[in-house]
Every structure is written in C-alpha cells, then in structure tokens.
Nucleic acid binder design. Sequence first.
DNA 1: CTTGCATGATACCGATCGGTATCATTCGGA
DNA 2: TCCGAATGATACCGATCGGTATCATGCAAG
Lengths: 203, 203
Amino acid sequence: MPEAAEEARPGRANRVAKLPPRERILDAAEELFHAEGIRGVGVQAVADRAGTTKAALYRHFGTKDALVAQWLLIVAADYVAAFDRVEERWPDEPLAQIRGVAAFVVDTLSTISHRGCPFINSLAELPDRDHPARQVIEAHKARQLRRLTAMCAAAGLTDPEGAAAEITFALEGAQVSAQNGSVDRIGERLVTFVDAVLVRHTA
Amino acid sequence: MPEAAEEARPGRANRVAKLPPRERILDAAEELFHAEGIRGVGVQAVADRAGTTKAALYRHFGTKDALVAQWLLIVAADYVAAFDRVEERWPDEPLAQIRGVAAFVVDTLSTISHRGCPFINSLAELPDRDHPARQVIEAHKARQLRRLTAMCAAAGLTDPEGAAAEITFALEGAQVSAQNGSVDRIGERLVTFVDAVLVRHTA
DNA sequence: CTTGCATGATACCGATCGGTATCATTCGGA
DNA sequence: TCCGAATGATACCGATCGGTATCATGCAAG
C-alpha cells in the first residue's frame, strides 16, 4: 500500500503534497508569514516548508516581496468571499449582512489565534510605502470600507459613512485586542458593540 | 560664538547632542524602531543615529532585544503619564477623565503619522512569546485596561468591564485605521464613538 | 597630577539574508 | 516515442545581521 505514506504527516500536509509547486509555496508562505512574521521568515524556510527549492520559488515569483503581495491577495480574496456569502445568504437584508460580516470576523479571531490580522501585521512590517504588498493592503481596506458603507446605506442608516467607519474601528480593534489577549470574551463584546452602532444610527 | 553650532541640525538633534550615550541610544531607538520597524533596523544604524558605537550600545543594554524592551518601557511610561494627567486635571470627574484619555490618543494619531501604535506594531514583529519586550507590552495593556475599567466604575457605568473593553476596541481600532489611512476624520469619529459608549452604559 | 573608568573607533566573528547560476531528472503532450 | 519545459538539488554570491574583542582617547574624581 504505497499511498498509505500520504498519512504520514497529519492535517494540511497530505492535502498539499501533490499540488503544483506554486500552490505549495503559497500555502507554506501563508502559514509561515502569519506565524513568524514576514521579516522573520526566509525564502529558504518557505521553500523547505513547501517541499521545494528556492530556485522554484524565484521562478514563480521573482522576488520575496512579490510573494508577500501574492499571499496577501489570497487573504484578501477570503474576505471578498465572506462579503459575497453574507450578501447571498441575506439578500435585501443589509442589517443581517452587516451582522454576518461581524460574525465572520469573530470566527477569524479564533483561527488567527494570538497572531493577529495578516493585514495589520504586514502593515507594521512593511514601512516602505512603495512595497508591492502595500497596494494590496490599501485596496483591500478600501474595498471593505466601501462594501460596508454600501450595506449601511442600504439599511437606511443615518450617516452610512460614519457607521461604517465605527464598525471598522470595532472590527480592527477586536483583532488587535484578541492578539494581545488583554480583553476576554471578545467575540460577544464585538457583536454587542456592532449592534449598538446599528441601533444608534437608526432613525 | 561656538555654541551657535548647536543649531546646526534642527529639531530634536541639538537637544540630544550632549546627553549621555545611554539616553542618546534610547532616543535613536525610539525614532528608528518606530519609523522602520524593529526588525528593519540594525544595531549599527541605532548606534550611528545616536552618534555612538555598537560597543557602547552593547555595554549599556547587552542585547538588541533588551534595548527593544527598554524602548517600549519608555513608550509605556508616556501612557502612564497621560493617565496621571487626566486624573489630576479632572479629579472626581471620571467621565471627563475617560474623554481626556480618548483625546490623548487622538493627539497621538497625528504624532505617529501613518506608522501606527508602537505596541501593536511590536506585537506583529515579535511573535516569540518569550521575548522580553512582550512582558512590557502585556503589562502595559493590562494596566491601561485596569485604569480604564476603574474610571468606568467610578463613573457609575453599568458593566464597567464591558465599557472599558469597548473603549479599548475603539482606541486600538482608531490607531490601526489611522495607520492604513482608509478612514478619514478619525479623531472626531473616535470621540463621537467613545461618547456613545459612555451614554449607552449610563443607567 | 595621576589614576581609573567610560567612551569612541575599528576590526572581526559566524550565521543568515535575498537572489542567481548550473545541471540532472522527470514528466506530459505532440 | 521523443522532445521540451518544468522541476529539484546544490553551490555560490555579496551584503548585512547580532554580537565580541581590542585599544587608544578623554574626562572626572581622588
């Protein structure tokens, strides 16, 4: 039974084992960049984790910075998918959509256990405003705020921009607080909090 | 006029010129770590900026990690001083104290122009939970939350812990939003927001 | 005046960094 | 079947990293 060797490493590994190198590298990058930080992980470590070599990594991405940008593009796509999901699940119910977005962030709070939001962390690690990953981050933040504002407007809230800004505060503050672990019961507090914002902005 | 040479470099530099090396190093570290990130600044660069040498740096701090911890201790002391100030300025007026703390954070929002909160950034750059600077960060966050909770309790708010947690969300979320620049008029929004929290938790 | 300590300058250490070059192997499509 | 592209392995490059050792200077207290 030769294929039994696939279960040698548990979890993610065997699922990834036979993917093309580009996918394996992105998978390894996601894991390592998030766990150790961008500047704390060398390209050799990423290649090793992906079961390939530095040469293959540079053939596909050309630069470590480009790899970082590609990784953040994937993370951003997860958020886009989450917004799509809540819009599909509660059509014509913008208030439910907003609560759905908050619930999505609450879910990520446990997933990203104590290592925080990849975008916030990357922003701290990439002070260079010309870094290719910065464009990805800014585009993501702008898109998220735009969709949130649209939901607030559709819900008939007074001052949709203000409501969306406050909700953004709360979402990002919750992720930071979860990272440093000083505040407990963050998920519940965040939901309560977003509800309060919605109520206050309702005529 | 020999002392006229002191005004050769504008701003901070001449004030620092004749301080003992330890102070100059901490001053340079504060500037560089915040601007470029901890991992983005080498000890040689800190020593150069301080007008001294690596040898002197290691004589005083022993380790780069220890220097980072000392730097964060100073930043934390600034926050402690801010809390002391609002308590001294509005004794027996806890609501005014809380608003004063929020105003202090609003002030820092422009000071730390687009480079974010040193604690949040350092947390992203130091994934190692045993890093000496982590203890400084955790102690700071815990102390800040404790004092904020005490103010909320003194103000007679229902659920002081909840109110303090929500205010913490807002303060940290505002700093992150200021860093990525996606949200405008952050200062006003933060003040509005904290007021709303106080109102909602008032019986 | 002299002694002693902190400082500044410099060279050096091994390790690791991002990135490149070379070459044998493998594998899928014509 | 054969060919060409993609892959894996490995060695190498210059630069920089955190950290150490050495030594001459300068300054301040005895």
